[in-house]
Design a binder for these strands. Structure first.
Lengths: 350, 350
DNA sequence: CTGAAAGCGCTTACAG
DNA sequence: CTGAAAGCGCTTACAG
């Protein structure tokens, strides 16, 4: 029964149901194994056979059933995104990026927030991965920094990609390095160039790799130009708005106020704005402020906030793309570099 | 081969692989069909048989393979979340809510943002639903307002739940009504009680049901108390920060400024803040502002913004829960009611 | 209440 | 380069 690209080909398929590999094989006059080879891009198919079958598949709108394929492969067509606690915009951007990579690939994105502070969250991720037979997992900060989590995935034989602030060794997974240090270096350069010397720093929790990188990048750059930041002007906060408020209150209570503050993220910078506004301290006339994230908040504040942009969507696209690529390329490292977006929150010191 | 709860039971299962229904049946000394009945909560199983098998399943940590079940059922264990364009915090909250309902249910959440302004987005959703054989779909505003989308799902026989600003008829899907009108009524009552009479309104696009409900609820309440809002003080904007800025500029350019502004969401209220701050108009001394959403932005602005809270996470939990409930209950309507969170952005008129 | 057979729509392992 | 058989781990339809 040879295939014919006739209007009635579709009618040969049981109506009301989607075509199966058997329908395609029958209509094309080949075995289902040959159709399977074409679905899986095997080179062991004659060119004209492939073209004939592909045309038929297009004609009837055939797509293989991911459940059946998954069962036979012992692996689903699902990509998991594992994350804990970051800001909403960051998560949504990361999801959009991942979906950019997965679009029309036959893979879908399954979201899995977790709480890395609970002792057994790794078991939760393990059950998720094992039960769904995930094809791969994206690890987003801060979960991505947990080596035990990565080790568990390696042991399960589940491929994963890690988004990390700084590059390091991992034999099993792929790294996407966001180079947070460089963003902080740029922020420091900018403030120095404006002429600031009395500079303060509000950091995220120093148990976070991102906070460490941003802090060191910032302080090292100042030190290189001979600017020391006294201990009292380095405040470890927690990446939240409220902690930014508290940090700013502490800084403003000192005998001499800094002329510029670098904040480890925009949320904390918004806290600084609030305290400054309340205290009648004018930004940027009396005080310059730089944030990190370039979140929507940055342009909603007034004056709009100078901040480091992270290209989160690109990061997500790369991380997800690395999981579905068929070439079993060597475990490479990809880089996404931040850069400073200058707005209206800084000027030379008074 | 009777089941024994002995330490070596697990060793009867091929090492390195997860247990299957066949392992359970063999170790329990029953047929796989009986195990299947237990998995699916069939009443046609003797109590002691059920208990024996369930104990064994717990002992070996057996969970049925969703791919195999999905293939046999012709339906996956995936819930799709379809949405277009709302704010990040809203989407993330909705996802958290849905995941609350799906936790430990065996179902997973697959995210599917779309763009309802493109003509063929419904086809995209259709492919998504058909190809993945979704168990159900959550429709989030504004996509949830599109009757054609709902009709397509009904035609496919895919169950769905719709989150909508106001209740209406739908024979196929379940409704979760967020009663946006009530939130706006509360905002109007509050401003009237403070003594405002010169009131302006910045609405979302009036093609959005949410914008219509909020607008009508607000204006009707004012009218009932004899307060008319002149046309020039009702500005249709687009739920964005920038559109809020433009609307505020227009309102402030009038001969007489309103003493209070109700904004259809917090983003636009942030735009009003920006213009007021730049123009030296003091909030709340010269101008009272009320938002809608109670987004994180509301407490980050200074003075913190009085806004209508939506209980988005609860909404998501109900919408997802309705899709996985086994009781084929009548298609009911659930309600989530908003309420005003009073902060520091309002006071009696000058 | 319980079970043996057939099937869901694919792939693997083997043979040619 | 191509195919027939067996299998992935479940459920449905039928029989008892």
């Amino acid at each position: 029964m040879p295939a014919r690209k006739s209007p009635d080909t579709a009618s040969r398929i049981p109506s009301g149901k989607a075509a199966t590999i058997n329908d395609i094989a029958r209509l094309a006059g080949v075995s289902k194994k040959t159709v399977s080879r074409i679905i899986n891009n095997s080179p062991l198919v004659r060119k004209d056979t492939r073209e004939k079958v592909e045309a038929l598949m297009r004609e009837v709108g055939y797509t293989p059933d991911p459940l059946a394929r998954g069962l036979a492969f012992r692996r689903s067509f699902l990509i998991g995104m594992v994350y804990d606690n970051p800001t909403a915009q960051y998560i949504v951007d990361m999801q959009y990026g991942a979906l950019d990579a997965l679009r029309d690939s036959g893979f879908e994105l399954v979201v899995h927030p977790c709480d890395s502070r609970t002792p057994n969250y790794i078991d939760g991720v393990r059950r998720f991965v094992q039960q769904q037979k995930l094809h791969g997992v994206m690890l987003v900060p801060r979960a991505s920094e947990d080596q035990k989590l990565a080790d568990m995935l390696a042991e399960l034989g589940c491929r994963y990609s890690r988004i990390v602030p700084v590059g390091f060794e991992d034999n099993d997974g792929r790294m996407i390095v966001t180079h947070d240090r460089e963003g902080a270096v740029e922020a420091a350069d900018y403030l120095l160039t404006l002429g600031h010397r009395d500079i303060a720093l509000i950091t995220g929790p120093l148990t976070y790799r991102s906070a460490i990188e941003r802090t060191n990048g910032f302080l090292d750059t100042l030190a290189q130009r001979g600017v020391e930041v006294p201990k009292a002007r380095i405040i470890e906060a927690s990446y939240t708005f409220e902690s930014g408020v508290a940090a700013a209150e502490k800084l403003f209570a000192a005998r001499q106020r800094p002329t510029a503050i670098f904040c480890g993220n925009d949320e904390m910078a918004a806290g600084v704005y609030k305290v400054a506004l309340r205290a009648g301290i004018s930004i940027p006339r009396d005080l310059s402020v730089v944030g990190y994230d370039d979140s929507p908040l940055a342009s909603r504040l007034w004056p709009s906030l100078t901040s480091v942009r992270r290209h989160t969507r690109d990061t997500g696209r790369i991380a997800a793309g690395a999981l579905i690529r068929t070439d079993t390329a060597p475990l490479a490292v990809a880089s996404v570099r931040p850069h400073l977006i200058v707005r209206d929150s800084c000027q030379p010191p008074p």
